[in-house]
Amino acid sequence: HNLTITQGKLFFHYNPKLCLSEIHKMEEVSGTKGRQERNDIALKTNGDQASCENELLKFSYIRTSFDKILLRWEPYWPPDFRDLLGFMLFYKEAPYQNVTEFDGQDACGSNSWTVVDIDPPLRSNDPKSQNHPGWLMRGLKPWTQYAIFVKTLVTFSDERRTYGAKSDIIYVQTDATNPSVPLDPISVSNSSSQIILKWKPPSDPNGNITHYLVFWERQAEDSELFELDYCLKGLKLPSRTWSPPFESEDSQKHNQSEYEDSAGECCSCPKTDSQILKELEESSFRKTFEDYLHNVVFVPRKTSSGTGAEDPRPSRKRRSLGDVGNVTVAVPTVAAFPNTSSTSVPTSPEEHRPFEKVVNKESLVISGLRHFTGYRIELQACNQDTPEERCSVAAYVSARTMPEAKADDIVGPVTHEIFENNVVHLMWQEPKEPNGLIVLYEVSYRRYGDEELHLCVSRKHFALERGCRLRGLSPGNYSVRIRATSLAGNGSWTEPTYFYVTDYLDVPSNIA
């Protein structure tokens, strides 16, 4: 807008934040220059609390790290170098490059900038070799853009010569660093050979998330399962459950009422301010606690030095998902009996873990797994792929695949051998790939016309006998059925096997 004052003059007093240069501009645009008398524009009460600059400061050096910015700028000295009290560095987070010096300023003089007072450097006698002032900004957020400017702080001049310097606002972004852990990993099994893994992005990506790394490792069953005799009275049979499938998407929606109208769909109840505040506090606490764990609990591995020492970490090797089922080394339970199943799973520490690289999504279907087997899954978020990966501390989750139908069934015939004193040795093959492992066998036998009897055969007993022995049988026709019990439950009964026990007292003698 054009402003013209045809008559009258300007009068400025007691404006401590208004620089004289701005008042002189007002004289020019209003056409009143030359009308004012000496005392109409006070030299001592206008701009006496402001830094009124008329020179431009330029930054000469900028260096960044993930949490620091090192700045240096060209030296500046007023005509009387004693008038320079120091520099004021202003900075704040700036997602967009549209910041002005006066953003967030209120009537009390406060604003949204963080201000650092910096002492002037030592003055050199040689004007050509003056030290460049600077400042190291610490405690910054990774991968965050900051708006920065600097200006001088000078003393009051009796001659009211307006001098000083100020830089333009520059924008500097800190470097990326390792992201925080992925949030809320959930693993479920939808079949006997697959596990579905879902997660949420890290709360602090500290860069642009480029991919996720998912490692999985087959877990050995508890050692007590191999040692305890679950045929003993009072000892509860062990059981394991597989990871249940995901709930429906509708039930997972946030901010939804727990109660549904019987007449149909209901609208979600909005969260109160107290609920939102509580969630923010919980989120802040979780982030602080995660940072504490990362800094205190997890110790970084030592990389190899120039002395030739090897990095103890196993090298990563990509495998196809079809090879995942046989990740671990199978060892027989008892070496003397080769027909026992290889369900003991000690994992070799030198073995390469299978892994998958996930790009542009937060889910993965891990296939080719062994049925009813526990897996430990390790999830890392990465925001750099080359020249070397920059990934987060791992988040861990466990899951067990679903049982395989008929995996616990005894394959092959049940054979028998009759000894003296009416002892019958029953023999059968253990299931080759049971659900988890076989903890015991149930032997059901009966003599024709009598009630059915049951015998429990422990895992250890089966390994020693290759089956079991029935003792003290009365003469007669017998039928026997056997079924295995694994961590997933009972298998199917075998087809009945028949044998006849004679009275050993009636056996004919070869003595003449």
Results as ranks from 00 to 15, higher is better:
residue 360 N to G: 08
residue 287 K to T: 10
residue 481 R to Y: 07
residue 251 S to F: 11
residue 470 L to K: 00
residue 403 P to K: 11
residue 256 Q to D: 14
residue 400 R to Y: 07
residue 257 S to T: 07
residue 241 T to G: 09
residue 396 Y to D: 02
residue 333 T to P: 03
residue 261 D to N: 11
residue 301 R to V: 06
residue 439 V to H: 09
residue 244 P to R: 09
residue 388 E to N: 13
residue 254 H to I: 12
residue 232 L to G: 11
residue 452 E to Y: 12
residue 222 D to A: 14
residue 488 A to S: 06
residue 479 S to E: 10
residue 250 D to W: 10
residue 435 N to S: 03
residue 329 V to A: 07
residue 296 V to I: 05
residue 273 D to T: 04
residue 332 P to I: 07
residue 471 R to W: 09
residue 263 A to D: 08
residue 495 E to K: 09
residue 315 S to C: 09
residue 330 A to V: 08
residue 313 R to V: 13
residue 241 T to V: 14
residue 419 F to C: 15
residue 494 T to K: 02
residue 346 P to V: 14
residue 239 S to I: 10
residue 403 P to M: 09
residue 372 F to A: 10
residue 482 I to D: 01
residue 460 K to A: 11
residue 210 T to R: 06
residue 216 W to C: 10
residue 316 R to M: 14
residue 257 S to H: 05
residue 238 P to N: 13
residue 505 L to R: 05
residue 466 R to P: 04
residue 271 K to A: 13
residue 233 K to L: 14
residue 455 L to R: 08
residue 405 A to F: 11
residue 501 V to S: 02
residue 308 G to H: 09
residue 223 S to F: 06
residue 412 G to L: 10
residue 355 F to Y: 08
residue 386 T to E: 10
residue 243 S to W: 08
residue 422 N to Q: 06
residue 309 A to H: 12
residue 424 V to A: 10
residue 421 N to D: 14
residue 497 T to G: 08
residue 277 L to K: 13
residue 414 V to A: 03
residue 400 R to P: 01
residue 452 E to Q: 08
residue 395 A to L: 11
residue 269 C to Q: 04
residue 317 K to D: 15
residue 452 E to N: 03
residue 292 Y to R: 07
residue 335 A to Q: 07
residue 505 L to Y: 15
residue 304 S to E: 07
residue 266 C to N: 11
residue 504 Y to W: 10
residue 297 V to L: 07
residue 381 A to P: 01
residue 412 G to F: 07
residue 308 G to D: 10
residue 209 I to Y: 01
residue 305 S to Q: 14
residue 449 G to Q: 11
residue 313 R to M: 02
residue 287 K to E: 15
residue 344 S to P: 13
residue 235 L to W: 11
residue 366 I to W: 01
residue 350 E to W: 04
residue 339 N to A: 09
residue 489 G to P: 02
residue 368 G to F: 06
residue 438 I to P: 01
residue 370 R to L: 15
residue 333 T to L: 06
residue 260 E to R: 13
residue 495 E to H: 15
residue 458 S to M: 08
residue 344 S to R: 13
residue 231 C to I: 02
residue 487 L to T: 07
residue 438 I to W: 02
residue 250 D to K: 10
residue 208 N to Q: 15
residue 222 D to L: 12
residue 317 K to Q: 11
residue 254 H to W: 15
residue 225 L to R: 09
residue 431 P to F: 02
residue 391 C to F: 01
residue 357 K to R: 08
residue 343 T to A: 14
residue 340 T to D: 12
residue 385 D to T: 03
residue 425 H to C: 05
residue 227 E to R: 08
residue 344 S to N: 07
residue 379 L to V: 06
residue 361 K to A: 10
residue 291 D to H: 10
residue 308 G to S: 12
residue 319 R to K: 12
residue 222 D to M: 06
residue 427 M to F: 11
residue 500 Y to M: 05
residue 447 R to S: 10
residue 234 G to R: 11
residue 287 K to N: 10
residue 334 V to K: 15
residue 481 R to E: 03
residue 345 V to P: 15
residue 228 L to F: 11
residue 397 V to A: 12
residue 429 Q to K: 08
residue 478 Y to M: 00
residue 239 S to G: 03
residue 252 Q to E: 12
residue 308 G to K: 02
residue 401 T to A: 02
residue 284 S to R: 08
residue 431 P to L: 03
residue 445 Y to N: 02
residue 291 D to N: 15
residue 352 H to F: 14
residue 299 V to I: 12
residue 498 Y to D: 12
residue 417 E to M: 06
residue 468 C to M: 11
residue 371 H to L: 08
residue 239 S to Y: 13
residue 464 L to K: 10
residue 272 T to P: 14
residue 215 F to S: 09
residue 322 G to F: 02
residue 475 P to A: 11
residue 347 T to Q: 08
residue 288 T to S: 09
residue 248 S to V: 13
residue 479 S to F: 03
residue 259 Y to T: 13
residue 208 N to Y: 12
residue 305 S to A: 10
residue 442 E to T: 13
residue 404 E to Y: 06
residue 500 Y to C: 15
residue 305 S to H: 04
residue 298 F to M: 14
residue 379 L to E: 00
residue 385 D to Q: 08
residue 260 E to G: 03
residue 218 R to D: 08
residue 383 N to P: 03
residue 345 V to H: 08
residue 501 V to D: 02
residue 284 S to G: 12
residue 299 V to W: 02
residue 205 P to M: 13
residue 268 S to M: 13
residue 412 G to V: 07
residue 223 S to E: 13
residue 209 I to M: 13
residue 305 S to F: 10
residue 387 P to T: 14
residue 297 V to F: 13
residue 351 E to P: 11
residue 278 K to H: 02
residue 237 L to S: 08
residue 278 K to E: 04
residue 344 S to H: 12
residue 239 S to R: 09
residue 242 W to V: 14
residue 477 N to I: 04
residue 476 G to E: 01
residue 210 T to Y: 07
residue 453 L to E: 06
residue 272 T to S: 05
residue 254 H to S: 15
residue 408 D to I: 00
residue 340 T to S: 13
residue 371 H to D: 00
residue 231 C to R: 02
residue 292 Y to A: 05
residue 470 L to W: 02
residue 204 D to V: 11
residue 332 P to H: 10
residue 469 R to E: 10
residue 462 F to L: 04
residue 224 E to R: 11
residue 392 S to V: 04
residue 331 V to L: 13
residue 272 T to F: 06
residue 412 G to S: 13
residue 340 T to K: 13
residue 390 R to K: 15
residue 304 S to V: 12
residue 473 L to M: 11
residue 415 T to K: 15
residue 378 E to T: 13
residue 479 S to D: 02
residue 362 E to N: 07
residue 358 V to L: 08
residue 467 G to W: 01
residue 242 W to Q: 12
residue 395 A to N: 05
residue 273 D to M: 11
residue 203 S to A: 13
residue 319 R to D: 07
residue 247 E to N: 14
residue 434 P to D: 00
residue 255 N to G: 13
residue 368 G to K: 04
residue 305 S to Y: 06
residue 471 R to N: 10
residue 509 S to T: 11
residue 477 N to A: 06
residue 260 E to Y: 10
residue 502 T to G: 10
residue 398 S to H: 10
residue 424 V to K: 01
residue 344 S to D: 03
residue 230 Y to S: 08
residue 381 A to W: 02
residue 374 G to W: 03
residue 266 C to K: 14
residue 445 Y to M: 08
residue 491 G to Q: 15
residue 235 L to I: 06
residue 323 D to I: 13
residue 306 G to V: 12
residue 221 E to H: 15
residue 364 L to M: 06
residue 391 C to P: 03
residue 276 I to R: 06
residue 377 I to H: 02
residue 216 W to D: 00
residue 454 H to M: 15
residue 379 L to N: 01
residue 312 P to A: 15
residue 424 V to P: 02
residue 301 R to L: 08
residue 345 V to T: 09
